[in-house]
Design a protein around this nucleic acid. Structure first.
Lengths: 155, 155
DNA sequence: GAATGTATGTTAGAGCTCTAATATGTGCAA
DNA sequence: TTGCACATATTAGAGCTCTAACATACATTC
């Protein structure tokens, strides 16, 4: 049972396979790699695709609100939006009332690119979903939700 | 059932809540945030901690092998090791036979820092594990494993 | 009206991550 | 021996990510 490593895992630490976090990380890494490959034909990164997808559903949204939807900080979203704007996939215009807010919208090209990337991403999601029964899928989502809940509370 | 967004999700795409990937990502984000906070007293990042932990168990390992264990590319591990070496937490010496290989080892300070970070990380992992029954934990790990398998095959 | 609070936006800096390309060294095979 | 294959190491460049700090603008309260 005990490993033969120099650092005595059994006494003070925990083996990697026992760490639920290891398995979450591995799944996330595989997910990112698969989505990255799926987005490649559209020449966008996964974070860029995520932003474009939300922008399609919520035109004129603020960068801060978009950051919350995508689960990143405002400076991070700022970086992503800069790259998207530099490629002409989005445009940002000052809000009529709240002068400090910039409304962000897809350009026509941005919409085209998003739809192309989305096709790939959905293909990945469908393949993933197909690996589970309805019941398993429900349970997986429930268990993952509990993970997020507990971990957020830890902080 | 259908959302009122501009981009018609129902026809060509998929709602975020239906995407298993969304839930994996959320759990991983919460995990990273919790581990980050846990590693902060030791003043190391999560990737740095991961490298230190493996180094404790496998002294003299090559950077490439360490990269595989940590699930990152060699250039990424190179970046992490540079930072660790700059802080004097590891040392790298040429391999006796294979001149191209650098053997990497913890310094005394590196071991101390690792143990401090590990205490925090294990605390997070134990809290996470405590949120599930034995059966749930087993199933979660099995389901996550299937995710990784399917996603890797997609690529 | 002035102070406070809250939300948005941005910059700076450190660090992680990838792909692509290059160099070096080892071992095997024609 | 020469060439090929493979592993390791590194550099370059683009992009994502965070925390910290600061600036701006609106809204509420005193």
């Amino acid at each position: 049972m005990c490993k033969g490593g120099t650092y005595d895992v059994a006494m003070t630490s925990m083996a990697p396979e026992e760490r639920i976090g290891s398995h979450i990380k591995r799944a996330e890494q595989a997910l990112l790699a698969a989505k990255n490959a799926a987005c490649k034909p559209a020449a966008v990164t996964v974070p860029q695709y995520a932003a474009l997808l939300w922008l399609a559903e919520k035109p004129g949204i603020s960068a801060a609100a978009l950051a919350r939807l995508c689960g990143v900080t405002p400076p991070t979203m700022n970086t992503v939006l800069k790259n998207l704007q530099g490629r002409g996939l989005i445009e940002r215009t000052p809000h009529e009332w709240h002068r400090n807010v910039l409304e962000t919208r897809l350009t026509d090209e941005g919409r085209t690119v998003m739809e192309r990337a989305d096709a790939g991403a959905v293909r990945v999601e469908r393949a993933l979903a197909a690996a589970f029964t309805e019941e398993e899928r429900t349970q997986l989502i429930e268990l993952l939700g509990r993970c997020a809940e507990v971990l957020d509370a830890q902080r």
